[in-house]
Simulated scan of single mutants.
Amino acid sequence: MKPELDGHTTGAPSESSPFAADLHAALGRTPKAISPKYFYDEAGSRLFEQICELPEYYPTRTELALLHTHAVDMTTQFGPQVQLVEYGAGALHKVRLLLDAMPYDSVQFVPVDISGTHLLAACDGLAADYPGLTIQPLVADFTRPHTLPPCPDGTRRVGFFPGSSIGNFTPAEADAFLRLAAAELAGGGLLIGIDLVKDHGVLHAAYNDAAGVTAAFNLNVLDRARKELGAEFPADGFEHLAFYNPAYRRIEMHLRAARALTLQLGGEVYVFHEGETLHTEHSHKYTVTAFQAVAQRAGFTPGKVWTDPNRWFAVLWLESQAL
């Protein structure tokens, strides 16, 4: 199976790659910050799969339970003939619960992910387990304009965005993505997972696991910069930092300089003071009503909502009106 390559995707990163350009920009601004999409090279994708299995990391198991319990109800919203587009597809574990609840031979599945090697391996496994499923993988940054395969006549285009990944976007980025999705899913809809506002202790434990897997995932951004871009910095120069910021209702992840140091990249030298950070991710937490309002402004009509007994997580159905 060969993935389709979107025009915004490149091959092996180099000093002229988007990663290099974005890292230079990140290191040159104050405060320093880079998009979390650069977590997801092959090593980062594997580490994230390990995070999803940690006892402290509640989002994955909570969302999986919701999908398992309510998959039939969720897929009833889709309609009989579906082009199912999964944004940030990853390992393709959760979509299996949807496929099991519907006649998947009537589904054209379009997983979209920035990590081509990881995506192709996941699609091979899915194809072996679902032999009647049409799979058209697309290697692309789904937050930027991209071209989906044509939607067959009589088929609704439905998006699937699990994992509360929308929380990694700033409010402006979330609005931009939802507007993009509402346009390309016109006449269909979006099934999306969101992490809900909850006790701060639960949140802290989820992003500071005892095994240190989240720390390794965070530090992998710099490991990737060393391997792919030739970045030079002390091996023990940075440490993982994650905390809840109540003012923004979000977890923040940073790479903090353990001491004063320099990072060299492509002939440029960037100075870090002791304690200075590179902000690598934030994970916003929502209430259901607040998120529905954001989705409505972007062009969706809020539909059914499924939540767990603790109200830690929610999966929402959003209708997108035909153009």
Rank of each mutant, 00 (worst) to 15 (best):
E281H: 07
M74F: 08
K285D: 11
A176Y: 05
D308S: 10
V158P: 00
C52Y: 01
A101Q: 05
Y58N: 09
Q136E: 13
P246H: 06
D175S: 14
T9P: 00
E228W: 01
A71G: 07
T277A: 14
A71L: 04
L265T: 04
S17K: 00
P111M: 11
P3I: 02
A128W: 06
A91D: 13
L278F: 05
D153F: 00
P171N: 02
Y40G: 10
G159S: 01
A33V: 04
D105F: 03
P152Q: 04
R226D: 12
A257P: 05
H68T: 15
L263W: 01
N168V: 09
I51V: 15
G237Y: 01
L5M: 15
P55Y: 06
I166V: 15
F109I: 04
F272N: 09
P150H: 02
T30M: 07
L178F: 05
F233W: 08
T30C: 06
A183Q: 13
D41A: 10
P59K: 02
L133I: 11
A215R: 02
A182D: 11
T134L: 11
V271W: 04
K94A: 11
Q77K: 13
G266Y: 03
A235E: 11
V221I: 15
T170F: 09
A91Q: 07
F291S: 08
I135Y: 07
A140I: 05
A225I: 10
R256V: 15
K227A: 15
F169A: 03
G201M: 08
F217E: 06
A21C: 03
L47M: 05
L318W: 03
E15P: 01
D100W: 01
T280P: 06
A140D: 04
H93L: 13
V197P: 00
L64I: 12
H279F: 03
H273E: 15
I114A: 12
P302F: 04
A183P: 00
E239R: 14
T307K: 05
Q83G: 07
W306L: 09
A33M: 06
D199R: 08
F313I: 08
N218T: 13
L255C: 11
G303E: 07
V82F: 04
M253C: 09
L180D: 03
E173A: 11
M1V: 12
T143M: 10
A215Y: 00
T10W: 13
F300L: 09
Q81T: 09
N220F: 07
G188Y: 05
F169D: 02
S16D: 15
Q108P: 00
E268S: 15
L190K: 02
G163M: 08
E49R: 03
A231C: 07
K37F: 11
E49V: 02
P131L: 10
L180A: 11
N220D: 08
E239H: 08
T60Q: 04
H200R: 14
H279C: 03
P31Q: 13
T214L: 13
D113S: 12
Y270R: 02
